[in-house]
Design a protein around this nucleic acid. Structure first.
Lengths: 131, 131
DNA sequence: CTCCAACCTGGAGCGCGCTCCAGGTCAAGC
DNA sequence: GCTTGACCTGGAGCGCGCTCCAGGTTGGAG
C-alpha cells in the first residue's frame, strides 16, 4: 500500500522523473525517503502531494506559490488559516481565468462561424467582420 | 477612423509597445505602415489582427501557429479551408483545456471545503483526505 | 528654431519550468 | 559474480514569449 519506485511514482502522478527530482530539489516535495543505497521511495503521502501539485499547476499557480503552500503545511496546523486563504485567493484567480477563457472561446467560435458562412460571398482579406 | 500611433495601438490592443514590435519582427503583423520618417502607423485592420491574436494567445495558441494562420491569410482566399481547419482544431484543444480547468477547479474547491470543515476535528499533516 | 517625449533599430537578457547530460552507483535476475 | 537497466548527482541548456537596453532619430508643441 506504500513505497513506490521513482518510475512508478512518475507513472502514477503523470510527472516525469526529472520533474519529480526537480520538485524535490526546489523544496516542493521535502524529505522523500531513500533506500540504503540512496534511491528514492515515494509514499502514498508523496503521491497525494503530487496530485495536489498537479491540480495547482494545471490551474496556473506559479511554483513559488506552491512552494509557499507546502512550506506552510510543513510548518504545522497553526498555518491552516493562511493555507486556506491562499487557496481561496487562487480559486478566485482561476474563476477569472475561466471567464476569460470562455469569453475568448466565444470569440473563436464566432470567427469559425464566419468561415462556415463563407462559401456564399466573397470575403475581405481578413479580420474585421466585427471581431 | 484609421491610423494609430504605436502608443495608441498599444493602449487599444493591450499589448506593450515592445510586443507590437516583436510581433512585427517575427512576421505576425506584416507590413505595418510607416511615416516618411519611419515611425509606425497602425490601421484598423492591424488592430483587428491584434484582437484576433489576443484571442488566440489567451486561449493558448503558440505563436508559431498564429504565424502560420496569418501567413495563410496573406496567401489569399484559397487558404480559407486550411485556416478554418486550423481554428476548428484549436477550438477543440480549447474545449479540452476548459474541461481540464473545470475539473481541477472542482478539486481545488473540494480542498477548500476541507479547510472550511476543519475547525471541528484535528487534521492530519496534509493531503490525503481523499483528494 | 528648439525642445523633448515618443519613436526607431539590433541585439542581449530574462523568468519560468522544466529537460538533458555525463559520469557514476545500485540492485534484481540469471 | 555478472550483467543490465533503473537510478543517482550537479550543473548546463532549452523553448517560449516577451522585455530591456543603448544609442540614435522624429516630429509636434511652444
Amino acid at each position: 500500500m506504500s513505497g513506490y519506485a521513482p518510475s512508478e511514482a512518475a507513472r502514477r502522478s503523470g510527472f516525469s522523473l526529472d520533474t519529480l527530482r526537480y520538485y524535490e530539489k526546489i523544496g516542493l516535495l521535502a524529505d522523500v525517503e531513500r533506500t540504503a543505497g540512496g534511491q528514492r521511495v515515494f509514499t502514498d503521502d508523496d503521491l497525494g502531494w503530487l496530485v495536489l501539485f498537479r491540480c495547482l499547476r494545471d490551474t496556473g499557480m506559479p511554483i513559488a506559490q506552491m512552494r509557499r503552500y507546502a512550506q506552510l503545511a510543513r510548518d504545522g496546523e497553526h498555518t491552516a488559516d493562511e493555507r486556506h486563504e491562499l487557496l481561496r485567493h487562487h480559486a478566485a484567480r482561476v474563476e477569472e481565468q475561466m471567464r476569460l477563457l470562455q469569453r475568448q472561446y466565444d470569440h473563436l467560435r464566432e470567427k469559425i462561424r464566419f468561415y462556415e458562412r463563407l462559401p456564399a460571398a466573397a470575403p475581405g482579406p481578413e479580420p474585421g467582420h466585427g471581431t
